[in-house]
Design a protein around this nucleic acid. Structure first.
Length: 740
DNA sequence: GCAAACATGATTTTT
DNA sequence: TCATGTTTGC
């Protein structure tokens, strides 16, 4: 197979330029992944580089997996020798192997954000600081930010400028101490410690440098300082570093991604070749034009000239609806319409939004319309309480000094050990500089802070159970171990008795399925790799896409995906751009704009940019203003739908508004058919022509005059001033009203 | 120690 | 509005 076949000139150049630093600026839909994988294949097949000498770094497991799969197709089994992984997975592996000199034992646990937060809270308590006064979340974030720049506790102390900084520093110090005692590393540590390792131990660095002679980095615009440092260290000698990214798609600065890394790259590698991939293979001309218009308004930006050979396509639809219910209803209606008349299926459609809360209205409408949907994100699998609990048990078995996991499971299920006991125990452990596990052991041996007989018995039972499980952990295969843990701890019984216990239990069974991959390993040896896997994986493998299922997703998560039909809802000031990014400086606003750009550039055929007149936020409905991003759309690329300016009437002329997207549709209205068939209330149906000023008669209240009409969800609320019964609010669909 | 009342504050979330 | 964490009463 010819590796270069089907590549355009720029792509080909990027594939063939293999010696020395290379920066690829890849516009959306420009075949970026193709270039990376073909480049690797080219290195191996054409220039004879051993796949063992290639490392490819990604941000997500999904990206790593996809890369691996595509390499498999190009290279066959040779592809397995390429080290393709996420920053965190790669670093974790390096630390397991070589982290001893940094005080990390090979079986260290990896703390996720929730664990980090618990630890911060504990540290605050240890330091006699009130967690309500000093927000643990903010402190966690500050520590994470410091680590992302390789600023140690000492370094942070040196630059502390305010009382708040001092608090952060004190917590940071204790926090690191506690991580050490628990033989734990948080996500940031994985990176920071590898950099420390390489800086302190040149031999270790040399080992990896001489092994991985070709380095590729995907989504380079999302790297933070420490990640870039790592790349420089690993690639600094052979300088065969290829980074691929798009500054216009940088949307993770709040995770400390630093767009300046792209500039630094050109400074640190002055001889770097820069290749820009500008041809787009994904979208129509109109969509690309709209996207370019939006992103061009950013000031701090490298100009890129995207173009496409694709057709012009339909205009970008600019849709205005009254509120979020009608917005969602429009989406549902449109999807049904498209899938009736066009070659489009619901599975080709995606609804994107800025905040997760916005999915609600969409879900409700989809349920009414009988549309299947898949919500991406939400409460993620490994974040679920029952999953975290189960994993915490397993972690303690693997590493009893893991204080955070131990304090999680000691009270669950209830075994007569409560908050008070736990805090006494924790304090005693702290005073004696012991781990929680050792403290429990001490109580069992007649020491400890001195509890009553009842608590002593409870703790003794807990300690015995843990010991048994630790022992048996050595002798059981993973699945048997998990079953034993759930049974012996009483967790199974407890969880199944709870509300939605069955669902939770099924989730645990799902975890057990993941464990099946490690069940064939010899007794005792499956646990460690299993825990590694679940610590570094944010989600279960994606459910395969189905033809009949619409995807609901945040704009952030949509990066890297593509769909024929894209709906972006809530393009309103305060939502997109989000109000929190409007407060200060232009930088965050520019990022919001990039977010919008990412959304639009996901589309292949159609884009619907939607906004409302009123939207409920935190339960309170208020007027909304169309997003400033919409102002930048050139009129000739746009077609308006929904409420058309100039045609609306003050007071809310319901009929005209509803008509717009229902009656102009040629052909049958599938939604109506569906609704009738299923016997569900027909959305937005039965709209009587009622306007303020009309005289009406009510069966009970008598005659009156309509003084207002308001849209509420699917219905209209009519306010009528009755001659005899006073002012009443009535639902148009329910009230026995007739016009007189 | 635990359940129910109460207060609070609420983007985005690759690992 | 609603989910989460904290206080309160048994």
């Amino acid at each position: 197979m010819d590796i270069l076949a089907g590549l355009n000139a720029a792509q080909r150049e990027a594939v063939q330029y293999i010696k020395g630093p290379l920066l690829i600026l890849a516009g959306p839909g420009s075949g970026k992944t193709r270039v990376i994988t073909h480049r690797i294949a080219y290195l191996v097949k054409t220039t004879g580089v051993s796949p063992r000498h290639i490392m490819a770094v990604t941000f997500t497991n999904k990206a790593a997996r996809e890369m691996q799969q595509r390499l498999q197709k190009l290279l066959g089994s040779l592809s397995e020798q390429v080290w393709a992984g996420t920053f965190h997975a790669i670093c974790a592996r390096i630390l397991r192997r070589d982290g001893k000199s940094l005080g990390l034992d090979t079986n260290f646990v990896i703390y996720d954000e929730e664990d980090q937060q618990s630890l911060v809270k504990q540290c605050l308590l240890d330091l006699d600081l009130d967690p309500r006064q000093y927000n643990p979340q903010k402190i966690r974030n500050a520590i994470s930010q410091a680590k992302s720049q390789q600023i140690t506790h000492d370094g942070l102390t040196a630059r502390a400028r305010s009382p708040w900084d001092d608090i952060v520093c004190r917590v940071y110090e204790r926090y690191q101490e506690q991580l050490g005692q628990s033989n734990a590393a948080d996500f940031d540590d994985l990176l920071m410690k590898v950099v420390q390792l390489f800086e302190k131990h040149p031999a270790a660095l040399e080992k990896y440098r001489s092994r991985y002679l070709h380095l590729l980095v995907d989504e380079f615009q999302d790297t933070n300082l420490i990640q870039y440092k790592l790349i420089r260290l690993l690639g600094g000698k052979h300088r065969n570093v290829c980074v691929v990214g798009d500054p216009d798609q940088s949307i993770y600065s709040w995770r400390f991604a630093d767009i300046r890394n792209i500039l630094s790259f050109e400074k640190d590698f002055p001889d770097a070749r820069v290749i820009v991939l500008e041809q787009n293979y994904r979208s129509t001309k109109n969509i690309l034009g709209a996207a370019s218009a939006i992103i061009s308004a950013n000031k701090k930006r490298k100009e890129k000239d995207l173009w496409t050979d694709n057709t012009e396509g339909t205009p970008v639809f600019l849709v205005k609806t009254y509120n979020e219910q009608e917005e969602a209803q429009f989406v549902a209606n449109e999807i049904l319409k498209l899938s009736g008349s066009d070659s489009i299926k619901p599975g080709d459609c995606v609804v994107m939004y800025r905040t997760n809360a916005q999915s609600r209205a969409v879900e409700e409408a989809f349920m009414r319309y009988g549309l299947k949907y898949k919500l991406v994100g939400g409460t993620r699998f490994y974040q679920r309480r029952e999953i975290k609990d189960t994993i915490a048990y397993l972690r303690v078995i693997q590493n009893p000094f893991d204080n955070i996991s131990l304090s999680r499971i000691i009270r669950i299920p209830g075994r007569g050990i409560g908050a008070k006991t736990l805090s006494d125990l924790t304090n005693w452990a702290r005073e004696n500089n012991l781990s929680l596990f050792t403290a429990v052991k001490a109580v069992n041996e007649g020491g400890g802070p001195g509890f009553g007989a009842k608590i002593n018995t409870a703790l003794a039972g807990f300690y015995r159970m843990l010991n048994d499980l630790i022992m048996e952990g050595q002798q059981l295969n993973l699945i048997k171990l998990i079953d034993t843990v759930l049974e012996r701890s009483g967790y199974r019984e407890t969880i199944r008795g709870e509300e939605d216990g069955e669902e939770r239990w099924e989730n645990i069974q799902e975890l057990r399925t993941v464990a099946a991959d490690y069940d064939d390993l010899p007794p005792g040896e499956g646990l460690a790799p299993f825990l590694e896997k679940v610590s570094l994986v944010a989600d279960t493998d994606e459910i395969e896409s189905r033809e009949d299922t619409v995807t609901l997703i945040t704009l952030h998560q949509a990066k890297g995906l593509e769909f024929p039909i894209v709906f972006i809802v809530g393009l309103e000031e305060g939502l997109l751009p989000h109000r929190r990014s409007m407060e200060e400086g232009g930088d965050e606003l520019e990022e919001e704009r990039r977010l919008c750009y990412v959304g639009v550039t996901r589309a292949e055929r159609n884009v619907y940019l939607m906004h409302t007149v009123r939207r409920a936020i935190f339960g309170m409905s208020s007027e909304s203003t169309p997003s400033r991003f919409l102002d930048d759309l050139p009129e000739h690329l746009v077609e308006r739908k929904g409420m058309i300016p100039g045609e609306e009437q003050p007071g809310g002329n319901v009929r005209v508004r509803a008509k717009r997207w229902r009656d102009e549709d040629e052909g049958i209205n599938i939604a109506d058919l569906l609704a009738k068939k299923s016997g569900l209330p027909q959305p937005s149906a039965g709209l009587a022509e009622v306007n303020p000023g009309d005289r009406v008669r009510h069966a009970k209240f008598g005659d009156g005059q309509v003084i207002g009409v308001r849209v509420t969800g699917q219905d209209r609320e009519v306010i009528v001033a009755f001659e005899d019964s006073g002012v009443k609010k009535l639902l148009l669909s329910m009230a026995p009203l007739e016009k007189i």
